[in-house]
Amino acid sequence: MAHKGTSTFIAQRASAVVLLPLAVWLAWSLAAHAGDSYEEIRAWLGAPVNAVLMAGFVLAAAFHMRIGLGEVIDDYIHSGLRGLCHAANWLFSAAVGLAALYAAWRLAFAG
């Protein structure tokens, strides 16, 4: 992440602040729905507010994760593999975020 220190720093903190309340919501909701059947989980995530919060959490987490994993890559990978690692990190983070977005959309809006 050369030459992007300040914007990366700010993006990491901003996503952290977004994630804090969403993480509280997630931990509490998952605990409350621990004994749910499939139909109950569908009904819970079928409510748009829950689907949006869930997609919001995973998207913000994927964004935050991409920065954090990028830092780890920069710290430990010094060979030519580094660029490949960053590309893999981008793909992984995008896949995690987009899969959750697709799932939330299907659960809440597309049946």
Partner: peptide
């Protein structure tokens, strides 16, 4: 902090997979 960040990356992938399965 770093170790839990790595663990949470795996956790985020699992959460995403769980959502896709539910959908």
């Amino acid at each position: 902090h770093r170790a839990t960040g790595l663990a949470l990356s795996a956790g985020a992938a699992l959460l995403s997979a769980w959502l896709v399965a539910a959908a």
